[in-house]
Amino acid sequence: MYAKLFEKSFYYALGMTLFCSIVGSLLGGLPYLTIIGALVISLILGMMFQLYRPAITSAEVGIGFISNKFLRLGIILLGFKLNLIDLAHAGVKTILLAMVIVSGVIFLTYNIARKLGVSKQLAILTASGTGICGAAAVMGISPQIKVSKEEETAKHNDEVLAVAIVAILGTVFTLIEIAIKPLLHMSPTQFGVMAGGSLHEIAHAIATGGAGGPVSLSAAIITKLSRVLLLAPAALVIGIWYQHQDQSTSGEKGKLPIPWFMAGFLLASIIGTFVPMPSSVLTWLVKLAYIVLGMAMAALGMSVNFKVFLSSGKKAVVAALTSSVILLVFTIIASKAFF
């Protein structure tokens, strides 16, 4: 009986989330919507589905499954976007800059958020999205945060809120960086490094880097992907740290939170880099990654609690905004000094 109910719920959820993801992907390719990105548009479309509650109720179990399992699959497939040879050619400077940015911004954003009274869970998700790679980082770090069944709804709300924060701020800073470009007097490479080092989503870095020409765009993508590469080790470190924090308060010892799906992410990047395959296949694998991730984002949107969403995010926004301003200033100085 339960198997039949789950199957029906899953197919309902599959259809709704796939619709949101495909529409999000199409809209995300439009000129004025590119900087928002397909993933965030899919999330918004999922939230709009809540206007028709009967559909959400009938698909509730399937929505939970897709937001969890499809998320991991999407992150694994996203690994095909990483070309390790290109990252190696970028040099030690780029990797070191990415390491400083990821570790520094996560630490800074988390501590500012906690000082302002933001919950530990929302603080680390917002910090991860700001420091690493936006929505994909929030979704990649989230499985490392283990909660009880009673707390799963609150966790979903925090995930959506963190994604919304980094998406909005990333879009705002994209427009700011393009506007101040003439005032910075940077070379194309320096401007690209600044864009890739300071902006949250890959789409944001591409939009800004492209404003500086092909050399700037290439530098932006490489710098941004250097931060994406750090998603796997960051997930492991944050998982261990978060578990240690929980042990300190509860006294219970849990299992080591190894993010096995991140091993798939790295394996996919190795295959994409070293296994000969047509570029069209790699392109389709990356597109599939965004479709699957879009479905997971839509599922999250379908399960968000709007009251919590609107009431608990202000302080997290202040924390992310503060660290984003500091990050922009830092990347301007670093790119001018070292690139």
Score class of each variant (00 low, 15 high):
residue 314 K to N: 00
residue 295 M to V: 05
residue 228 V to Q: 03
residue 200 H to V: 07
residue 209 G to A: 07
residue 102 V to S: 03
residue 99 M to H: 09
residue 321 L to K: 04
residue 85 I to D: 05
residue 50 Q to D: 00
residue 167 A to Y: 13
residue 142 S to L: 06
residue 106 I to C: 14
residue 221 I to K: 12
residue 109 T to P: 02
residue 279 S to Y: 08
residue 301 G to P: 11
residue 141 I to A: 04
residue 1 M to F: 07
residue 269 S to R: 09
residue 142 S to R: 10
residue 87 L to I: 14
residue 76 I to Y: 12
residue 229 L to Q: 03
residue 202 I to S: 10
residue 37 G to H: 04
residue 102 V to E: 10
residue 185 H to C: 01
residue 301 G to M: 07
residue 262 M to D: 08
residue 258 I to K: 10
residue 239 G to T: 06
residue 101 I to Y: 13
residue 232 A to E: 00
residue 71 L to S: 12
residue 104 G to C: 05
residue 322 T to V: 13
residue 211 A to N: 12
residue 268 A to N: 11
residue 57 T to H: 09
residue 317 V to G: 03
residue 288 L to D: 00
residue 221 I to E: 09
residue 307 K to R: 13
residue 189 T to Y: 15
residue 116 L to E: 00
residue 276 P to R: 08
residue 10 F to H: 03
residue 99 M to Q: 06
residue 238 I to R: 14
residue 119 S to C: 11
residue 257 P to W: 14
residue 22 I to Y: 12
residue 323 S to W: 11
residue 252 E to P: 00
residue 19 F to E: 00
residue 230 L to D: 06
residue 38 A to I: 12
residue 310 L to E: 03
residue 53 R to W: 01
residue 199 L to H: 10
residue 154 A to P: 05
residue 133 C to P: 10
residue 109 T to Y: 10
residue 237 V to G: 09
residue 263 A to L: 15
residue 329 V to S: 08
residue 198 S to N: 10
residue 179 A to P: 02
residue 72 R to E: 14
residue 183 L to I: 08
residue 188 P to I: 09
residue 267 L to T: 10
residue 289 A to F: 12
residue 237 V to I: 15
residue 220 A to H: 10
residue 120 K to R: 13
residue 107 F to C: 04
residue 157 N to V: 10
residue 271 I to P: 09
residue 167 A to D: 01
residue 91 G to W: 09
residue 255 K to H: 10
residue 23 V to E: 01
residue 144 Q to A: 15
residue 159 E to K: 11
residue 89 H to E: 05
residue 204 H to A: 01
residue 170 G to F: 13
residue 302 M to K: 01
residue 198 S to C: 08
residue 106 I to T: 13
residue 13 A to K: 03
residue 72 R to W: 06
residue 175 L to W: 11
residue 21 S to I: 11
residue 16 M to Y: 09
residue 111 N to Y: 14
residue 161 L to V: 01
residue 332 I to H: 11
residue 259 P to L: 05
residue 150 E to Q: 05
residue 247 Q to T: 06
residue 216 S to M: 09
residue 269 S to T: 05
residue 154 A to Y: 12
residue 24 G to T: 04
residue 335 S to A: 14
residue 13 A to I: 09
residue 67 S to F: 08
residue 46 G to E: 08
residue 297 M to P: 13
residue 220 A to P: 11
residue 38 A to E: 13
residue 339 F to R: 00
residue 318 V to R: 01
residue 320 A to M: 05
residue 331 T to H: 05
residue 82 L to Y: 15
residue 130 T to Q: 04
residue 99 M to Y: 07
